[in-house]
């Protein structure tokens, strides 16, 4: 059973309510419909109710699969606004939120913030920037976390690591040049993301060009400081370093280079890159030379799950990412 099959199976056991603020987009509606009809999620389409209803009928979808939330319907909107402003962890007040909620993306996220849906799925018409900004404004960052970041899940043919062919890596997509505190938060968030999605015991390695002092310089100092902060903030998590990539994932190399006890060295299932240059290049190397499938990016650091889907993604990939986000949302409840 592939990793995606396992995630799909997990979704079916506990389908989550997923809001779609881009329901009029044909690919998005199809992916939402297929994921809903197959029982992986409960799709909630947010937008102009009459338009969505007409489009769904025209496209031949069974209307009973969808719940449609009409953003022009005042009574429900006011209920969401009242619940939102009553929360202590929100910033916008009634009037400002009401204005923002004329936009389906903000409407869906406000529903998520007050628990009417479990996750918002967007990004096919909205840009990544739109989704990140709305997420910061409405959902907010997780307490104690200073930055939004992302991880990807790589399925690498022929790789025999501590989780078989799978390896989680981050951040390869969002945080350009994290300072030590941000880098620590990326590692902590990554541990929580893989716990929620895959039930792994996280073993997170902070990688750079040095293993336990074999190299020196400011690039390494940043990683060491990030490690210190991460370990201090979350001593319950297995976060270790600083390691070179081979010392992180190869037991033989770890045995030679890491002369102290480590729960991570040689068997890391998460790699944290020092910056986005490394992260972007590393993922491309894994894909180009390792012929890996890379799932994600999965956004992390928000107080609940915020998703961004690739604008050029085919329906099958969108569906996969919808289901991944639903399983992450379910994992967050545990």
């Amino acid at each position: 059973m592939s990793v995606l099959d396992k995630i799909f199976e997990k979704a079916k056991q506990n389908p989550q309510k997923v809001a779609f603020p881009e329901a009029m987009n044909e690919k998005m509606m199809q992916a939402a419909y297929e994921a809903g009809k197959d029982g992986y999620i409960i799709p909630i389409l947010v937008g102009n109710g009459a338009e969505i209803k007409a489009a769904a009928e025209e496209r031949g979808y069974d209307a009973s699969v969808f719940t449609i939330v009409d953003i022009n319907e005042e009574e429900y909107k006011n209920k969401v606004i009242a619940a939102f402003v009553a929360r202590e962890d929100t910033r916008l007040k009634e009037k400002a939120l009401g204005r923002r909620m004329q936009d389906p993306l903000y409407y869906a996220m406000a529903m998520q913030k007050v628990g009417e849906v479990d996750v918002t799925f967007a990004g096919i018409d909205y840009t990544t920037g739109d989704v990140l900004l709305a997420g910061q404004m409405i959902i907010g960052l997780k307490e104690g976390i200073s930055t939004i970041s992302s991880i990807g899940l790589c399925d690498i043919p022929g790789y025999e690591g501590s989780e078989g062919s799978l390896l989680a890596v981050g951040d390869s997509g969002v945080c350009t040049n994290p300072n030590p505190e941000q880098l620590a938060d990326i590692a902590i968030s990554a541990c929580e993301t893989v716990q929620g999605l895959l039930d792994w015991e996280p073993r997170c390695a902070m990688v750079c060009y040095s293993t336990l002092g074999s190299g020196q310089g400011e690039l390494i100092d940043k990683v060491k400081e990030a490690l210190r902060i991460a370990q201090e903030k979350r001593p319950d998590l297995n976060i270790d370093g600083e390691f070179q990539l081979d010392a992180a994932i190869s037991p033989a190399v770890a045995a030679k280079k890491v002369k102290r006890e480590s729960k991570v060295a040689g068997k890391a299932n998460i790699l944290i890159w020092p910056d986005l240059n490394v992260g972007n290049i590393a993922v491309k190397l894994i894909q180009q030379f390792g012929h890996a499938n890379a799932y994600g990016p999965m956004l992390q650091g928000f107080s609940s799950i915020v998703c961004d889907c690739s604008r050029g993604a085919p329906v099958s990939e969108i569906k996969g990412n919808i289901v991944i986000s639903a399983v992450r949302a379910a994992g967050l409840k545990n």
Partner: peptide
């Protein structure tokens, strides 16, 4: 900046 923009809106 998000906090600031939110407060300006409010």
């Amino acid at each position: 900046m998000v906090a600031l923009v939110s407060e300006i809106e409010n």
